[in-house]
Design a protein around this nucleic acid. Structure first.
Lengths: 369, 369
DNA sequence: GGTGTGAATGTATGCGCTTACATCACGAGC
DNA sequence: GCTCGTGATGTAAGCGCATACATTCACACC
């Protein structure tokens, strides 16, 4: 009646439970005829091995974990945008594109290596229990920066491998985790330099993310560095901080134009979502992009090449983050004592129309059709 | 040295393992002072309860599963688009937006109910083992239609609750699963009727998905039904079948115009991704949307309101699919013997510019700023 | 002072599997 | 004919926890 176990299968097939287990773990140590008998019994009984029991006995779960922030709370404009119909819904979705990509990359890599993926968003609220919850179920866990404090992660990392994604090792003495980082600084530096040097723009405004976003802060430092390099005044803070969402990008435009004595020649957004949200608002205000004002983003999400003008941005390998997470996790499963490593993933500039590099858009016609 | 267990914590705190367990399961049955002692010991030892052991002992994992297709293989144009730089990457991402939304909805709902989420993509290859793998680790599993055969699911459903997402109950005698469906037929019927009745268009072309996509097929039947209703010739098959991706949507345009004697007045795509890919290609060929040719999609992914012209489409509640999955799963966990249920989620038409309902785009200016 | 009562804690068992070790059958080699 | 190796299978001991049940203790009550 209830869920069948190895014992039921063993009885039904006339073998011992060890043989049943071997059929699933080491099929080639079992005589072919016996194996078939066991599998037949399993099929007729509807037997499915218990992952829990297996995990307990073999002290490995075959599952990796990923904690990411579900940071709706950052978007202070959510309420206001309800009048736009499904806008709020979309906004929510937009914000998550980044996590989605990391999840997908990690799921694929995990599956290729024979692992499952347990995902858990952590809302800013009860962080400790959530991550401990997944920690108890997996062989290793990746954590997107900003989700859980490094101190907590250190505790958890005593039990299993932990890798921090998109976050720097702030204090080498306290932080013995593996890290995967993205060259945010370099990317924003190059992009800012591009605007200054190649397009001759000097009045640039940076729209940042919330202060607790390591990505956003690193990008701003790249923005500053380009100013230093070019001998321009170095802004101490992002001109505006916004919620990294489409709607907050749109709202940032109003705030920008209202508070600035002089219109900037370019607005550099900390991510693509905001830039994408800003474009229609600029259009509505009669500002032509890039003629009147250039716009750039960061990430290269798929929307960015579909909007008009197509968005100039810095492409970061979001799925690769997930892949590297799996790689580092399994390397550490194999050797718990290896020295902590940091991997830095490179980014690349994608010049499209919104900075002035292409005339209208970047649609490439199909060959010969 | 190695991972601490209840025994270690019990020793360290001077209590029995039962008390340690109670501190985590039923904190209020333990004296406050004792509880603190145990928690202190746990903290200094770096104790994290083993999900496996807990699951084994309590016969429940606290985790739900979701299987979804990772169907890159459908996109026959992937190779050709490499010359477009990151196009292939984007295409891949595009295709997954739907799954991503379902995952997100399910993750949120699961978390709210105190469950974790184990996700596993199933490539068309070794389906059985993958889904059995997750089945062994979870308290219930949701499966996106097209991922696993109903027969296999029936076997698995003898062990744990299974719900099928976005797929109809084809044979009530063989299929005792719970289902969550979306009103694809109704949505496409309404949209097609809209083009015929409100816009006076009669020459419509439908670009479908692969034949094994239940969503795509149901939408095509809605398309047919609208023709029947209007007394128009009823097409027996979608004019073209494509891969549901942005690039396959673009390619569909060429194929459409090349094979059709007369240009259709409207192209209705089985999903938004394809429609979004088609827009720049139409533009490139000098066809104005919607003046020369109307375009519609299905899903209402977030890009659809950002492209120009903004896409008229049918909105389906993708996240809701995930939420309902959790709901049905937990209801069946509570009562294994309840009758199989099917939930039908409603869709809604979103009229934007690409069908001719709005002049240029649907950007709503901000109030008073 | 004996007894009943309830709260706090301990004891002991089993969840379903993996795996080291034991056993067994069967030939090969001497 | 006996030993020994080898492949196939069985035996039994946990893995780390939850929980039924037993025990202890303090206290109230008659």
């Amino acid at each position: 009646m209830s869920t069948p176990t190895v014992y039921d299968v063993a009885n039904h097939a006339g073998v011992s439970i060890a043989t049943v287990s071997r059929v699933y773990r080491n099929p080639d140590t079992v005589r072919a005829e016996t194996r078939d008998r066991v599998l037949a019994a399993a099929r007729t009984l509807g037997y499915v091995p218990s992952g829990n029991a297996r995990g307990l006995a073999s002290r490995a779960t075959g599952v990796l974990g990923l904690c990411f922030p579900d940071n709706l709370q950052y978007d202070e404009h959510r309420e206001e945008t309800q009048e736009l119909g499904h806008e709020a819904h979309h906004d929510e979705a937009d914000l998550m594109i980044y996590s989605d990509e990391v999840i997908r990359g990690m799921e694929r890599a995990a599956r290729e290596r024979g692992y499952g993926l347990l995902i858990a968003a952590t809302v800013a609220g009860d962080p400790a229990s959530t991550v401990a919850d997944v920690a108890g179920r997996v062989d290793g866990v990746a954590v997107l920066a900003g989700t859980v404090s490094t101190a907590e992660l250190e505790v958890i990392s005593r039990r299993l491998p932990v890798v921090m994604l998109a976050g720097p090792r702030e204090n080498p003495a306290l932080d013995h985790l593996d890290h995967v980082e993205v060259a945010n600084f370099d990317g924003q530096l190059a992009m800012t330099r591009h605007l200054i040097v190649d397009h001759g723009l000097t009045k640039l405004a940076f729209v940042g993310g919330p202060p607790n976003s390591p990505d956003g802060e690193a990008r701003f430092r790249g923005f500053q560095a380009a100013h230093l390099e070019a001998g321009l005044d170095i802004p101490a803070e992002p001109r505006i901080r916004a919620g990294l969402t489409t709607s907050s990008g749109r709202h940032a435009i109003g705030e920008l134009l209202a508070t600035l004595p002089e219109r900037p020649q370019a607005v550099m957004f900390a991510n693509d979502q905001m830039a994408v949200g800003a474009l229609p608002e600029l259009e509505h205000r009669g500002l032509r992009v890039p003629a009147d004002i250039a716009v750039t983003g960061f990430d290269d999400i798929s929307v960015s090449r579909l909007v008009r003008p197509a968005l100039t941005t810095v492409r970061q390998p979001m799925q690769e983050l997930g892949r590297h997470a799996v790689d580092l996790l399994l390397a550490r499963v194999a050797d718990r004592d290896r020295a902590p490593v940091s991997r830095l993933l490179q980014v690349s500039m994608v010049r499209r129309a919104s900075c002035g590099c292409r005339v209208s858009h970047d649609h490439q016609p199909l060959n010969g059709s």
